[in-house]
Design a protein around this nucleic acid. Structure first.
Lengths: 351, 351
DNA sequence: ATCACCTGTGGGAGCGCTCCCACAGTACCT
DNA sequence: AGGTACTGTGGGAGCGCTCCCACAGGTGAT
């Protein structure tokens, strides 16, 4: 912290002009140095850098934003109440990946919750004011108006997951179909006869794809699919409990449960325990997400791992690309804007 | 969302000037309306508001920030790694209070982690650029350089807790001394003879005050204080386990444990279980924070509740006051800038 | 010698606001 | 009638940058 530059009053930070004067060059040249333009001679660059250091110059972001029409900030928008954000390890993992990828950048990350109507109202205002260069949208439901709002405002955006098979926005998803399939195949390979599925919210495309994977795995094995054995939870522990109770009722002789999330699996486990079923002896249990919950469960939970941190990184890459593309008014056209990363089964004691 | 104003190209949002032209008034008048100045006639105000609505005008924040020298944003700085942020319910509660209090405002909240050196570096840059009007600093250790950096940069700041008895920065704390005392008095009133203390990090003033409360409660009851029965953890579960083991070793006949946080209490509980001590029959256990952990523990944990959400609100109030004070260059002088909110014992089955 | 074309540089214009001074108009005292 | 004061309003100046045009000076082909 070269804490010079305490010139004059509190707000009196040095400006570009002052740096230019000190370095004996023009304003434009200093700007070029600050922004890393190559069209500056080495000698001049050195002089400017010295002046910057001496004065403790820091660019004024507001002025830059005004002149250049960019903010150097992106928002991570979570269309959920804060409570779910903290309960769900998905979000914190995502945040970690995003943060890591962004730390090499000058970009600032804003975390915005849009769970309530009021918060959504605020967010809309916020976006209309173009206070960010781009948006990362996590956990999108099929009927969410946010993606459309974003494209209407022409704000670059990347979503995690997809809204449907033919997502138009750039997106990063994991192979939910493959994950679901792998889980069920694993259960069958262990000799389980009655595999039920505790699904997520069906307005989430990824949750649907897990159902599809579940189905196809059964069909491929020549078994029948009974739709009554697919019960949606809502990704919460309580939802898991409810769905599990229902499943036990409908199919008392079930011997394997594939849950659409670890949190729901935790709920299911409680109900199974209370019903006197031992895990994995009587019933095998598989979760999804491979979160801390899975590792700490008793017994440790087999789970499908999504590379969430990696997805976060990929989202940033895509988004930065989108933002860069939009600058010189020339779009590179349709590159690979839909990424799907593999999911992987992590086998533990619960199955 | 009155989504007009799609005039011309993408970036072509309407400006103040355009609104003024449409309403048939001057630029200054529109600015006055936007900013809620009372010195505008009702008729004019109505005309301007109509023009704003028709054009879908949204002020350009960058221009405003540049002209007015303010950002309308404040930062919540967490000098901890992200992992602790998510593990510790303290932070999420605080965030909730802060968010709630801020939602009536135009202010934007930024969440900034400063756990690693690198992150701190970035933060320093960030603050030097004055990208926020004020800072909320949570979880400050005694030797943290951040508070001093902030006052040096003349950035309004409020900290949660205090660095010492004579904190200079505006702060909001809870009565840690009273909380510690209440916990120990409760234990003694239950007939417990050997009360030990599993302390927090001693470079956190609040943790020290809890120790003071523990001490004084014992002294007031005419008992002796044995410093060897005060063992610091580091606020983590693992730290709680370690400290508890040590305490059991030093004092096998203990019958009550006052832990400086619920998370540490959870660690202690495991060790006590493994050592064959029943809670509360053999050993009473009290935590601190009254978090979700306390409610869900088996048995439910008696804990000292701090009004964290309320503290968050109070911090915002103080901070907004600080920011407002600094604007007209006239300081209101020393009002109440140090708040201490009461702590309260919540008795459950563990004691 | 002429022209074309680089590289490096200076500085004007302008981004969209807020701040504040100036001033017209009205009101109410002397 | 003149003075004083207040209300509502318009618009100039300026915040600190980036963008871009202009231009000096060098370099090499013709």
């Amino acid at each position: 912290m070269a804490s010079h530059g305490a010139r004059g009053r509190g707000g009196g930070r040095p400006t570009l002009e002052e740096v230019a004067a000190r370095a004996g060059v023009g304003r434009g040249t200093v700007s070029r140095v600050i922004n890393g333009s190559p069209r500056v001679s080495d000698a001049t660059r050195a002089a400017v850098e010295a002046a910057v250091a001496e004065l403790g110059y820091v660019p004024n972001t507001a002025a830059r934003a005004l002149a250049a029409n960019r903010t150097d900030a992106i928002a991570l928008v979570v269309p959920e109440p804060e409570t779910r954000f903290f309960a769900e390890p998905y979000f914190s993992d995502m945040l970690r990946g995003v943060g890591a990828e962004l730390s090499d950048t000058e970009m600032q990350l804003l975390l915005i919750f849009a769970g309530s109507d009021r918060e959504r109202q605020r967010l809309a205002q916020y976006l209309a004011a173009h206070r960010v260069d781009g948006v990362l949208l996590v956990s999108v439901h099929a009927d969410d108006p946010l993606p459309d709002l974003l494209s209407q405002l022409e704000i670059p955006a990347v979503i995690s997951g997809r809204r449907s098979a033919d997502e138009t926005l750039p997106s990063v998803d994991s192979d939910n179909y493959g994950g679901g399939r792998a889980a069920v195949e694993h259960l069958m390979s262990q000799g389980r006869r009655k595999v039920v599925h505790l699904a997520g919210r069906l307005d989430v495309y990824g949750a649907q794809r897990r159902v599809d994977g579940y189905r196809q795995a059964l069909l491929d094995a020549g078994r029948e699919v009974d739709d009554r054995l697919i019960v949606p939870g809502d990704f919460t522990e309580e939802g898991g409990r409810r769905a599990m109770s229902l499943l036990l009722e409908r199919c008392p002789d079930l011997d394997a449960v594939f849950a659409g999330s670890d949190v729901m699996a935790a709920g299911a486990r409680q109900v199974l325990r209370e019903a006197g079923r031992r895990i994995p002896d009587d019933v095998a249990l598989i979760g999804y997400d491979d979160s801390a919950i899975a590792r700490h469960m008793d017994p440790p939970l087999t789970s499908v791992r999504q590379p969430i941190e990696e997805m976060g990184r990929a989202m940033i890459d895509l988004l930065l690309g989108e933002i860069a593309d939009r600058r010189p008014a020339v779009s590179r056209g349709l590159e690979k804007r839909q990424l799907v990363l593999p999911a992987e089964l992590v086998v533990r004691a619960s199955s």
